[in-house]
């Protein structure tokens, strides 16, 4: 009985997320006015900015989990760290692609080495390494500790990457477009941020369950199953 209630609540949450997502997409694509300078192209922002923000949020969650794990080891923390690293990878990959598409009509090139976008792109490669490490270590406890260390190393690099790209680029050109923002645009952006946040939560919960189930399967093997990978100490 309880299981079925939970199941229904989950389905309702997913449907609600989809509804808010659809409404937010409508505000961004139809309802909001075109930008004074960038015209309709600016509508990419309503997807690009939330995607990148959710990537950074995932990275923050990953960092917190990594620190917490080193102080207090728990499979749940490890599973959430794995989940958040993967969502960071997904949201970051799509987010930077959108940024590049947006850059083409506005800057004239796909990639203008914008410091923020470049930082996110570097972080993407770093989290790809993090996920590869998780895949290439078979002992779950070592994997958890090592990936926690790796997650911390990646996270503390963020400000240094940002400043290095900024200074590196400032030797070539400076780009700044201070503009007043239409209140309708703010409204649409807020809804889109909410929508993508909810999508992130749904993804995180689903991925967290996958990771946790995998951890429990790895750690509680009653007898060595045939074909199970032996951990070499």
């Amino acid at each position: 009985m309880e299981m079925r209630m939970r199941r229904r609540l989950e389905i309702a949450a997913v449907l609600g997320t989809l509804g808010i997502f659809a409404y937010a997409a409508w505000t961004g694509l139809v309802w909001a006015p075109p930008d004074r300078e960038m015209g309709d192209v600016q509508r990419i922002m309503y997807a690009h900015v939330p995607m990148v923000q959710m990537m950074l949020l995932s990275g923050t969650i990953n960092f917190v989990c990594c620190v917490v794990y080193l102080f207090r080891a728990s499979w749940k923390t490890d599973a959430l760290a794995e989940a958040s690293a993967e969502t960071a990878l997904v949201f970051g990959a799509i987010g930077t692609t959108l940024g590049a598409i947006w850059g083409r009509p506005t800057w004239g090139v796909y990639w203008a080495w914008d410091p923020r976008l470049t930082t996110v792109a570097i972080l993407l490669v770093a989290y790809a390494g993090y996920m590869a490490l998780r895949r290439f270590v078979d002992d779950p406890e070592r994997r958890a500790v090592w990936s926690a260390v790796t997650g911390i190393i990646i996270a503390v690099d963020v400000p240094i990457i940002y400043f290095s790209v900024k200074w590196w680029k400032s030797l070539h050109q400076v780009q700044s477009t201070p503009r007043t923002v239409d209140p309708q645009m703010v409204y649409a952006l807020r809804w889109n941020i909410t929508a993508f946040f909810l999508v992130l939560i749904v993804f995180l919960v689903a991925r967290y369950r996958i990771a946790l189930a995998a951890r429990l399967r790895e750690t509680t093997v009653p007898e060595p199953a045939p074909g199970a990978q032996q951990v070499v100490a």
């Binding site: 490669v125 290439f136 790796t150 990646i154 290095s164 790209v165």
Partner: peptide, 29 residues
Amino acid sequence: LYGAIASHARARDVLLPLLLFPILIPALV
């Protein structure tokens, strides 16, 4: 730090640069 980690992982020859290069970008710059 990464050398100690990667040396005990599978595919360590790929893993070490994959872990090390992205975070070294600011130092390289």
